[in-house]
Design a protein around this nucleic acid. Sequence first.
DNA 1: TACTGTTTAAAACGATCGTTTAAAACAGGA
DNA 2: TCCTGTTTTAAACGATCGTTTTAAACAGTA
Lengths: 209, 209
Amino acid sequence: MSQADTVTRILDSAEQLFAEKGFSETSLRMITTRAKVNLAAVNYHFGSKKDLIQAVFARFLTPFCNKLDKELNALVASNQQPNLHDVLGVLANTMLTGVHLTGNANKLSVFMRLLGLAYTQAQGHLRRFLRENYNETYSRFILYLRNAHPELSQREIFWRIHFAIGACVFTMSSIEVLRDMAIADTGEDSGIDEVMRQMIPFLAAALER
Amino acid sequence: MSQADTVTRILDSAEQLFAEKGFSETSLRMITTRAKVNLAAVNYHFGSKKDLIQAVFARFLTPFCNKLDKELNALVASNQQPNLHDVLGVLANTMLTGVHLTGNANKLSVFMRLLGLAYTQAQGHLRRFLRENYNETYSRFILYLRNAHPELSQREIFWRIHFAIGACVFTMSSIEVLRDMAIADTGEDSGIDEVMRQMIPFLAAALER
DNA sequence: TACTGTTTAAAACGATCGTTTAAAACAGGA
DNA sequence: TCCTGTTTTAAACGATCGTTTTAAACAGTA
């Protein structure tokens, strides 16, 4: 087994288990058992559990933010004053096409769950890591949203955006449970595409109002 | 020190620490140290850590749901067909006036954070406990929301409600992180009451559209 | 005061955690 | 083939966890 294999298998397993259970509830022994590598491999290749957590986020967040940056560049190149739908459309498109989570079938669900963990379970080190590495893209995205609605105060924009993020993160990270509940409630299944089709006007209505 | 004192002090400390750190990140030794009681007192009075977690939720959720039930009774007694604002208003009012978290200064913040934990960190036992004890009030509340908009399909109502729940839960469980981000972003702090004041019209706009 | 059941106290239990160690296995070039 | 640096392995480390044990302190009653 090559080094790349071991590192990748650890990242894959950690990604799945973190998304499923959270950070503290996932032990290195769970990760290395699922990855079929030796326990010490984590500390050898990554240094510590904290570094592994950061590596898991870096692996999918770096290409995601790069893709988002490119798309935002393309957007402002073709449209000096993009409106809310334009900016949100870029985000949705990047999420649907630019997320690569190796070895996981339901990529979007894992992506959202990890994103949710970044908010709800972020210890100091992870919050610092994310801010240092991805705050630039994040701030830029927020800025475009703000520019689309210059009549709103910074505070209003901030909280509306994060209410919307909350709806996204919660829905997508519990999508399996919610679909089961929807079947029990309405008698019919709701495909992911239908859920997203309903969520986008929901978010737009809540943001624009 | 009387038994009631010991039990109450454990509940107070556990409540604070759970809200602050989550369940797994809070050890019984942290709790008993802060409560200034012996370590074994938790297992003596509550049985286990899981039972303590449930007791913490029961202490504030039972009076909260009783209050909410009463308010909902009063609402339908005075208004056979309450609209969305009425129902959401009852919820907001109950949250603002009917929450008693002993020994904590910022009660609403702790309440929100615990509610968020109930969704994001609930392992099997807590989810089961909450469903068994509080699902009736919860279902009733959802029903009134649905009745307020009979023109919408069950599916539409279902997903809108859960998008809204997502915005609430996410905001509640990440409130400290978000307030920090808001300070970094806007330069000013946003009090919890202000966040709620902004969230309610957000939810109403998103639900009614 | 002596007795009884309840509560608190200190100490230890076994399990699990992240991490480290030291040796074995491996790979590639001289 | 031998050497060298890298990677994997098995085992152990110290720390911390939830829980249990056993005895001491306490409160109420007769």
